[in-house]
Design a protein around this nucleic acid. Structure first.
Lengths: 169, 169
DNA sequence: GATATTTTGTTAGCAGGCTAACTAATTTAC
DNA sequence: GTAAATTAGTTAGCCTGCTAACAAAATATC
């Protein structure tokens, strides 16, 4: 039966998060923070807060808090945008750039440990299922559905996160 | 590259959670609550709070809060244990039993939507990878590891959640 | 050009994970 | 039998998701 598959998915994601968290711990970074740094690197400095939030897949207020913390730590800075006075663009400080290198190295090493024992085929198949799940979830929240589900908006399925240059998790 | 696979895993788990949450919404239950109910059903009434927490895979304080809410809602009740005065065992109220049936029906239907388009083989392979990930995560937190990771205890890998009677997620 | 809508950023506060630290009861060790 | 260690439950408070509601700026509509 598939009855525990959602539970298993949740546990796996949670464990992944916990493990990586431990790996980054002595850099003084929590998961939400190093993820923000990596995404900012990938997107390129100068993006707006909402662009970064969309790329990561979280809502603006969640993004905001993390960015405040990163700014307080002196790892990034926000600058006013000339074109659009509403926008605040994001930039690494020198300290942020320096730390980022370590973060990237940890991310690569941590990931390889977590994926240990999985063949390339398995990884590919795994990724395909995850994408299908995201697609199904997207459909389920878009259409009010066969069940009486009180509407609620959710983030769009991530564009096809596969073929971007990337450096996500 | 596998560089986005952790991100993808997190997104998938998060979307799954959100979708099921929406499905349960009009029952007045949040995810943590209906999960607790289903696990309690599976384990059988009369288990202790820590047993339930271990089965779900969360820590006691997290469990406690959810159980308080369920008790406040009149869905479960706690009774003192004769054998061990420290323990408080968990029982459904009549209202809890009644609601549980609806919850189970929703869980089954929601899951089938989320797994739509995935072959039995894919589901099996997917489950296998998730279990490998859990195993790897477990190893990574157990052994101080090749990286300088400041120790931190994590929940043990779930025994082999596969062949239990179950009704997890 | 004035008004309505959308977009960006923000604050406030809830949800549910977590650890740390504590009490009380039980068990283990002398 | 008494002291030490463990275990069940609890409280307090952090972290990071979320929604709701709002201001200010930009854009669209007329």
């Amino acid at each position: 039966m598939d009855s525990d598959i959602g539970w298993l998915l949740g546990r796996a994601a949670h464990s992944w998060k916990t493990v990586v968290d431990v790996w980054m711990q002595d850099l003084g970074l929590t998961q939400s923070r190093w993820i923000a740094l990596l995404h900012l690197k990938r997107m390129g400095q100068g993006v707006t807060q909402s662009q970064l939030a969309a790329d990561i897949g979280i809502e603006q207020p969640s993004m905001l808090r993390t960015l405040n913390q990163l700014e307080d730590s002196g790892l990034i800075e926000r600058r006013a945008d000339q074109q659009d006075a509403r926008r605040r663009t994001l930039w690494f400080t020198a300290a942020g750039t320096a730390l980022l290198e370590k973060v990237e190295a940890r991310a690569v090493e941590g990931r390889s440990h977590l994926l240990d024992g999985l063949s390339p085929d398995q990884r590919l198949a795994f990724r395909a299922v995850l994408q299908q799940l995201l697609e199904n979830a997207h459909v389920a929240t878009q259409r009010p559905g066969s069940l009486s589900c009180p509407r609620r908006q959710s983030l769009p399925v991530p564009a096809t996160a596969s073929d971007l240059p990337d450096t996500r998790n």
